[in-house]
Design a protein around this nucleic acid. Structure first.
Lengths: 153, 153
DNA sequence: AGGGTTATTGAGACAAAGTATCTTTCATAT
DNA sequence: ATATGAAAGATACTTTGTCTCAATAACCCT
């Protein structure tokens, strides 16, 4: 009866939402649980060649909707997925090595809420990504690729 | 010698950056200047069938890098472009009608800067999109599509 | 445990949003 | 006017998914 989202019970969370526990789903979940970093859909497709491409994408969508993984964009727009470790959060993305971090900032949320009110209408959600050159890359002096429009969006 | 970015002198801005004033570029710029709303690359391709697809995309990239247009994502991830009316800003995107608005919030920027420092490394940029149901859609009670994970990213 | 129902899968075609290549054409400086 | 290099067009290719439809497998019931 407990709804645990973390641990090895992502599957349980899906089952609690009425989805079936199938072998492909179990394998996909097991695979992505092992990844501490962000991953692409193609990573999964490559790692699990006996699972159909469509199934991988269907499962990703399922996990996104269940809030178990997040979808985010590298600075060039490439999509990445990452396990959601916290309830509500946003991501830092290193522009050189692609490492993904999480952060939470209540103040930002509050301000966006205010802005939403000002604009009129109602707030549905938001997307925030903070592009950095991470400590490691900065220390190693790895050059930051020149991205045309730096303060993206 | 004046570098005007707004008005009908987007072209001048490009020329000042060393790019050539070609007919396709003039036509693309003229076309997108007439659009108050967001637009897709396909909109331009459709409107200017005598211009090659690659050229449309190349010009879009150019204008992005020059900061003349912005690229943003609808809540489902579909890309949209929009003329940049202000120096630094972010966008509100109506999840039902797709109308794009701009806002600026110094406080948000400041906080993100702080977070970047905390994380270590250096800040390259950020992406913020605020998804709303705009005043019009809210008034008309247009139902908001259920988007799986609402506070995107 | 067996069987029916229905969700889910796999295969492969299709789609959207670009990008790469390569030859031709055009803008610009001289 | 012309040389030179930037830009364009055509077209093939790539990436990231989505759709369809028949075959399979979970789950519920008894």
């Amino acid at each position: 009866m407990t709804i645990e989202i973390r641990g090895s019970t992502i599957l349980a969370a899906l089952e609690n939402q009425g989805y079936r526990s199938t072998l492909p789903r179990r394998e996909i979940i097991e695979n992505l649980e092992k990844r501490s970093d962000g991953f692409t859909a193609e990573d999964l497709v490559r790692d699990l060649p006996h699972i159909g491409r469509a199934t991988v994408f269907r499962t990703i969508k399922l996990l996104l909707e269940a809030g178990i993984i997040c979808k985010l964009s590298l600075i060039n727009g490439e999509p990445r997925y990452s396990l959601a470790h916290a309830e509500h959060h946003h991501h830092t993305v290193c522009v050189t090595c692609g490492t993904i971090g999480e952060f939470h900032a209540g103040t930002v949320e509050r301000i966006l809420r205010l802005i939403g009110n000002e604009v009129g209408g109602s707030i549905i959600g938001h997307r925030i990504e903070l592009y950095i050159s991470c400590a490691d890359c900065a220390r190693q002096n790895i050059p930051v690729p020149t991205v045309g429009h730096t303060h993206v969006s």
